[in-house]
Amino acid sequence: MITLDSCQKYFHKGSVNEVFALNDINLQIEEGDFITVIGSNGAGKSTLLNCIAGCFFPDTGKITVNNRDVTRWPEYKRAKYISRVFQDPLLGTCPSATIEQNLALAIKRGKKRGLGRGVKAKDRELFKSRLKHLGLGLEERLLDKVGLLSGGQRQALTMLMATMIRPEVLLLDEHIAALDPKTANQILMLTRDIVKEQGLTSMMITHNMKHAIGFGNRLIMFHQGRIIFDVRDQEKAALTVEDLVQKFYKSQGEELAMDSMLLA
């Protein structure tokens, strides 16, 4: 279970560019939650994920993973419990390394790396069976450099790498936004399957209202650094796109007409 306890974060504090990115965030991510996160650009969704991942420390507040205080843990240390998939398919893999080398890096997430062989023969079978799951034929291309793969293939591989070792939470930051619609859909289905299979706790940022409603058991809506809406289970299952837009209007008033148009 992951908790955020009154987390606040300013960027460029004290300058004219000051941004109040996270405004007193209290959030409990329960074991097995699949949370979809929505909100307009600059609302604080990515900041929240980066804050959980440890890209920066909150100005105030506390973050715990399984009751362990990780507020001051740097990103690489939190990686033991938290894995991520980025929006840019190029960010999740290493282009000059082969597919098996990338997977071998992932299988050591959060573990000591020593002078043993980087790619072990006994792991190859595991890599192959996992890759076969993707249905992209990558299991035959273990020795191909990842730089040769398409964006969709790389993102599929990143999904695999992020879940090679079971994370406490999987953070997906608009991970299908940079892909063409067909590939995006494939990666989305893959995400759903992996999350379901492993019973993963996960958070997925999306701009697609249908995805936000159709996936996961819980939905949170961000606005101006605050969580303005948090529903789960039955209540979430009953949501419609119109409800969400309505919700947005209600809590924020007329000034947000532009934002709600963006969201719809």
């Binding site: 990686a79 071998a104 050591k108």
Partner: peptide
């Protein structure tokens, strides 16, 4: 050395520091 676990992490650090950090490498 560059074929070991540590060496592979070094290769990846030069290639994609963001990724190796997210895989738990300092």
């Amino acid at each position: 050395f560059l074929s070991t676990e540590l060496g592979q992490a070094m290769l990846a650090t030069g290639d994609n520091p963001q990724m190796v950090t997210s895989l738990g490498v300092n």
